[in-house]
Nucleic acid binder design. Structure first.
Ligand SMILES: [Zn+2]
Ligand SMILES: [Zn+2]
Ligand SMILES: [Zn+2]
Ligand SMILES: [Zn+2]
Lengths: 144, 144
DNA sequence: ACGTTACATGTAACTGTATTACATAGCGTT
DNA sequence: AACGCTATGTAATACAGTTACATGTAACGT
């Protein structure tokens, strides 16, 4: 019964000490995964920790994303823990998603961000947030 | 039966003359809409033209997207007709989506595309396709 | 004409993703 | 205790997309 689910519930919340129980569980699950997880994937991994409904996961994800601790990959309907220990990153974040192995590389490029600002400024568009997702093959998988 | 659904079915396929019936209907619906439509929105608008199941819409959308005549907005789970009469655009396409009025502005920025290429090259990442979606307020709505 | 292939279509059932609505519980403030 | 605020629990529902299987239809070679 000491299932594998415990290994992240055990050390709880390393990343921020004011997460609620569900937020800690969800972030722990994401951080221990080697790839993006859908909300239902997360739910399944947390059933033995007492979670039973999708909403519990979505609520936690919303809070985590507000704080920049997790990100949503729109093109996958899936979520990842922020790769930057405490991202809180404003502005553009980009993700390179390997379609072979599923690995996701998070990065920020100030030049792209600035270039985007130029475009928006020229048109009077007020940018709230930007999602940028690159699909392809990572170096490892491209070599194979 | 001279329903309103005819006004795009009537002149059929202006954009490409080798579309199938369903492809023409779906593209016509997208082209006449003033904003993005979900697959089920499209289906509802085409019931009087005989469409009855989601798959009929998804199949048409797949073909249209293959040909660059329609695009998917990942962050909305919705679709638009390509704004460029015959896009066939390779490389990066970006969308600025107004969260107030729903209008979508499609554009391509070679500099961002190039910058992305630099990033990918440095890491050996083989880019297949990129989605870039900017959320915010268009000039009109920002003024109000 | 006939069988064969390729592609478009029709329909139902189903899986997966996300939200609405309502009830409950904990906690700090007054 | 009463209040406001946040987190939680649960069920039901809405929205999005796919699988499986059957049918139609035009092109091609025999
Ligand atoms: Zn991050
Ligand atoms: Zn890979
Ligand atoms: Zn286009
Ligand atoms: Zn607007």
């Amino acid at each position: 019964m000491a299932g594998m689910g415990d290994d992240h519930a055990g050390h709880d919340h390393v990343w921020a000490d004011d997460l609620t129980k569900n937020q800690g569980l969800v972030l722990g699950t994401l951080a221990h995964s080697d790839g993006p997880l859908s909300a239902y994937d997360i739910l399944d991994k947390l059933r033995e920790d007492g979670l039973r409904a999708p909403l519990q996961v979505y609520r936690a994800l919303d809070k985590l994303m507000e704080r920049g601790l997790a990100h949503r990959l729109e093109s996958l309907n899936a979520f990842v823990a922020c790769a930057d220990a405490n991202c809180h990153r404003r502005g553009l974040i980009a993700f390179a998603i390997c379609e072979d192995c599923g690995k996701v590389d998070e990065f920020a490029d100030p030049l792209i961000d600035e270039r985007l600002g130029v475009w928006a400024g020229a048109r009077g568009f007020a940018v709230a947030r930007t999602t940028m997702e690159i699909r392809g093959k990572c170096a490892n998988c491209a070599a194979a």
